[in-house]
Structure formats: C-alpha cells, structure tokens
Amino acid sequence: MVKILLACSSGMSTSLLVQKMEVEAKERGLDAEIWAVAQDKAPEDMKKADVLLIGPQMRFMKKKLAVTAEEVGIPLDVIDPVAYGRVNGKAVLDIALELIGNYNK
C-alpha cells in the first residue's frame, strides 16, 4: 500500500483533491491511502506516509518540512499550482508515485 499525505494551510482545500486522487488510484487498481492535514499536523503524519505533497500556497514551508521529511525518510515536494487549481487528481497522483519511485531507487 502506498501512503500519500497532502498538507495545506487548514487541510480543507486539499480534500477535493484527495477524493479525485482516490478515484484515480482505484481506477488503476492501486492500493493507496491518501489523506490531507493542516500544516501544523503534517510533521506528525509524515511518520505514517510514503510521500508528502504540500499545497502551492504553503511553498514557503518546504524547507521547514523538508527537515522532518528527511528525518522520517520520505520525499516531499510542492504540488504543481496548475494541477492543484484544476483539482487534477491524476496529475498529482502521478507526481506522488514518481517521487516515491525516485526516492526508493
């Protein structure tokens, strides 16, 4: 099972994106757990995730969150603003899977 964590300012704006990603994962037959949290909860939830994607509005937090991500051994990146704005679950799922694959090489 792949575990994908999304983080945004309050955890609310990514909830629709999570739903779209879950539909895409299901269509691919991918066993995935995808969830969203507010930025202050992200460091704790990273311990349970394979990857962290942060909302574009939080790109300023990337360096701070990268410290924890490195400690727990997961990749992280900022979600592409266009994919985020369009709530493109397929594109964001692809990014997450690519990050996990490249990190585990």
Rank of each mutant, 00 (worst) to 15 (best):
M1L: 13
M1H: 12
M1I: 12
K3A: 07
K3S: 10
K3Y: 02
I4W: 01
I4Q: 01
L6V: 14
A7D: 12
S9C: 04
M12Q: 10
S15N: 09
L16N: 05
L17A: 04
L17N: 03
L17T: 05
V18W: 05
Q19G: 04
Q19D: 09
Q19R: 14
Q19S: 13
M21T: 07
E22T: 11
E22P: 02
V23E: 15
A25S: 08
E27D: 06
G29A: 13
D31Y: 08
D31F: 05
A32S: 07
I34C: 14
W35Q: 10
W35L: 12
W35Y: 15
W35E: 03
A36K: 09
A36E: 07
A38M: 08
D40L: 15
K41N: 08
P43Y: 11
E44A: 12
E44H: 12
E44T: 05
D45E: 15
M46F: 05
K47V: 15
K48T: 14
D50N: 07
L53F: 07
G55H: 02
G55D: 00
Q57K: 02
R59F: 12
F60I: 09
F60H: 11
K62G: 00
K63M: 03
L65P: 09
L65G: 08
T68H: 03
T68A: 09
E70A: 15
I74W: 01
P75G: 11
P75H: 08
P75C: 12
L76C: 09
V78W: 07
I79E: 06
I79N: 07
D80W: 07
D80I: 12
P81Q: 10
P81G: 08
V82F: 13
A83C: 08
G85Y: 04
G85E: 00
R86D: 01
V87I: 15
K90F: 07
A91S: 10
L93V: 11
D94W: 03
I95Y: 03
L97C: 07
L97W: 10
L99N: 09
L99W: 11
I100D: 11
G101M: 09
N102M: 09
Y103Q: 09
K105A: 12
